[in-house]
Design a protein around this nucleic acid. Structure first.
Length: 676
RNA sequence: GGCGGGGUAGCUCAGAUGGUUAGAGCGUUGGAUUCAUAACCCAAAGGUCGGCAGUUCGAUUCUGCUCCCCGCUACCA
């Protein structure tokens, strides 16, 4: 840490296609903000950079759905996201966006340098092309019937109804989401970064950072072990940073190429010395991210920087795991989230409470769970009972007994010595925790000051000695005020709004980290402005309201998922007649090795025994299937899966809860019997 | 299936390069107190550290196998 003259802190660029929720905050913005606020208190040279990632396919799809331009969509969410962060006191030095002109320039320069130096591999592949819209279609832009669950509306990369991962060519009746026309395969050229060539250097880089968190190195090593593959750094799309080469109409940079460069381009908008923060050897780069971004920040971006040659690699990538909500994964599409803009309406002025609750159960080492009950407990038993109460006691006692003026302090007794001895260790421990990204521990340490305060007051009992020895009582309260001042500094990174309130109440105009442990911060004679209650109890009803809201959401989503799927388009009889559906008997069944979902079935079709693979291993035990008659599609084109050819498809009926049932004749039928 | 992360007090989580009584906060119970938002303070109870085997004088900490949760990845004709 001492080897570096400045620190460049980034927080993941958030995708500008929706509002933000507590998961985002807990995942990287809150820890980053705590870290940065701490460094600023230490008077370090630090910049804090983040922004929105505004390119990529999902935004164009959202725009098309809403009848807007992609720019309109990102403009809306940029503002909303930026606003939420501001409200929560996330103290970015700049909150930028990747649709900005400066960003386009910086990432194009970056790309061009790699291009000119021959760092890319050009490759022509066949991609779906929409002849009406005259453009190539990204996977997400192609819809069709899912080959697995047969439902319409599956995307080229995934069917959201059954969760199957797809490739666009697998879709039945593929359609362009743009024009509705049938897409055709057409060759297109793209530029690949040969990550495999950088693997040895990346391995060295990772090996030189043994101090990284185990979840980070674990994930990275897993990728390295599988062997890196060249990755396309360009896409056929109209929305994004155009490729700065001739004849590349309709091609843009891959979002994960331009997004991390966003950190750099945003820095450029912040300060003319932007290059120093990214290129100087004594600049320390720290990326705060969620675990879903590990590979991009620890492998792909570093590989880009190595290829470029001018940039420093990240010194730390403190990635958090995920924050769950009431036991379930947070999900935007399922509306299972606590949205920041809604929280601000429901709990006005309580940003610090959420900051505190999220930090206290931050997913630093494993997925954590946010519950409203826990939120209430953290507020009532810690913020109110420990911190708020201590502060209130100190102010009220001085208001009542000393007319709101800080009394002078005399020579302390054993109690004061004990107190100072207890406090003296806190700063070093707190620093160690913060510098090692252990924000949960750090928060407990900062709160320790208030705990010590309560203990001190209970032992010194100034309200008792007031009558017989005013000066001694004054001394106790002077010490108490010094503790409040120290708490306002130690807690500044975590609950900045409350810390600020405290400092105003104490008349502190300047403050710095080095005041921790100092009992001379507030001088006797200072007039205090009682800030009133710092935190208020949160009643059961308020919390219950939030839980009810979530329960309702869940009920609604369940209802929606239970609705019977819409009917498919009418087909001609001839089309139906093409399908050879038959009855057969399963004579043998076994689990496919190395597969979670596949069963290998031997089906007697009346002529021979054929092999059919079926993705039902999670629904049926192999031994329960043997001897059962089933309905199967007999003339489906064979397809190889995991090295074995599947000759047909078993028909399954799916229940509302997703469970499967065999489609069987209601009496024994001879094997090979047809279904019409 | 492969890879990674995790399984420690009622709850949320720390921790141990293997060694005397395994920690914190909250919760529970008892006590003390009234300056304070029935808050604070003191104390106690509570854990065969996921399971089985191995290495070792000794393992919760190391190794192997196994079960459960989460993520990435392959896979659902």
């Amino acid at each position: 840490m001492s080897d570096f003259s400045r620190t460049t802190v980034t927080a993941a660029l958030i995708y500008a296609n929706g509002p933000i929720h507590i998961g985002h905050l807990a995942g990287c913005y809150l820890p980053a903000d705590i870290y940065v606020r701490y460094l600023r208190l230490q008077k370090k040279d630090v910049i804090f950079v983040s922004g929105t990632d505004e390119h990529g396919v999902p935004i164009t799809i959202k725009a098309a759905k809403e009848g807007k331009t992609p720019q309109q969509v990102v403009d809306y969410y940029y503002k909303e996201i930026k606003d939420s962060f501001e409200q929560f006191g996330i103290s970015f030095d700049i909150y930028g966006r990747t649709s900005d002109r400066v960003h386009h320039e910086v990432s194009q320069e970056f790309f061009l340098k790699l291009y000119k130096e021959g760092k890319f591999v050009e490759e022509v592949t066949e991609q779906f092309y929409d002849e009406e819209a005259k453009q190539f279609l990204a996977d997400r832009y192609i819809t069709g019937d899912c080959p697995s669950c047969k439902q319409p509306g599956a995307y080229g990369d995934q069917c959201e109804k059954c969760g199957t991962t797809l490739s666009p060519t697998e879709l039945v009746n593929p359609k362009s989401a743009l024009s509705g026309s049938k897409p055709v395969l057409k060759p297109t050229k793209n530029w690949f970064l040969p990550l495999d060539q950088w693997q040895p250097e990346l391995e060295k880089y990772i090996a030189s950072h043994l101090e990284w968190k185990s979840n980070v190195t674990g994930q990275v090593k897993s990728w390295l072990q599988e062997g890196l593959k060249p990755r396309a750094m360009t896409r056929d799309l109209n929305w994004g940073v155009p490729i700065p080469l001739p004849d590349t109409e309709g091609k843009v940079l891959y979002v994960w190429f331009d997004a991390p460069i966003g950190y750099v381009s945003m820095t450029k908008q912040l300060t003319p010395e932007w290059e120093t923060y990214w290129k100087a050897k004594d600049s320390r780069i720290v990326h705060f991210i969620g675990k879903d971004n590990i590979v991009f920040h620890c492998l792909i971006f570093p590989a880009m920087c190595m290829a470029h040659g001018g940039y420093q690699l990240a010194d730390q990538v403190p990635a958090n795991e995920f924050m769950n909500l009431e036991g379930d994964k947070i999900s935007t599409s399922r509306n299972w989230a606590v949205w920041l803009h809604e929280y601000l309406v429901d709990f006005p002025g309580k940003q610090d409470v959420l900051r505190y609750a999220l930090t206290a159960s931050s997913p630093e080492t494993k997925d954590a769970d946010f519950t409203w009950a826990d939120f209430q407990t953290k507020n009532n038993s810690e913020l109110v009972a420990i911190l708020g109460n201590f502060v209130n006691r100190a102010f009220v006692l001085i208001d009542k007994n000393f007319n709101s003026v800080v009394p002078p302090k005399l020579e302390g007794t054993g109690l004061e010595a004990d107190l100072m001895a207890a406090v003296v260790d806190i700063p070093a421990k707190l620093e160690a925790a913060l510098e090692n990204y252990k924000f949960r521990d750090a928060l407990v340490l900062a709160m320790e000051i208030a705990r010590l305060g309560n203990k001190y007051l209970a032992e010194a009992e100034p309200w008792k000695i007031m009558k017989e020895d005013t000066a001694k009582a004054g001394t106790v309260l002077n010490y108490a005020v010094q503790l409040v001042a120290q708490a306002s500094i130690a807690l500044e990174p975590f609950i900045p709004f409350s810390a600020h309130k405290l400092r105003s109440a104490l008349g502190m105009t300047s403050f710095e980290w080095s005041s921790l442990g100092n009992f001379e911060v507030i001088s006797a004679g200072t007039a205090l402005q009682n800030p009133g209650l710092l935190f208020e109890k949160i009643e059961d009803e308020e919390v219950q309201k939030q839980v009810d809201k979530l329960t309702q959401t869940k009920a609604q989503m369940e209802l929606a998922s239970k609705s019977v799927p819409a009917l498919k388009e009418t087909v001609a009889f001839d089309d139906f007649a093409k399908m050879d559906i038959r009855i057969g008997e399963i004579v043998a069944a076994e689990k496919m090795e190395k597969s979670k979902k596949l069963l290998k079935l031997q089906v007697n079709d009346g002529f021979v025994t054929r092999t059919i693979l079926s993705g039902i291993a999670e629904h049926f035990a192999p031994e329960d299937l043997v001897g059962k008659q089933v309905t199967f599609l007999a003339n489906l084109a064979p397809r190889k899966m995991m090295g074995i050819e599947s000759e047909g498809m078993i028909l399954m009926a799916e229940d509302a809860d997703g469970s499967l049932a065999l489609v069987q004749p209601n009496k024994q039928i001879w094997n090979g019997g047809t279904v019409n």
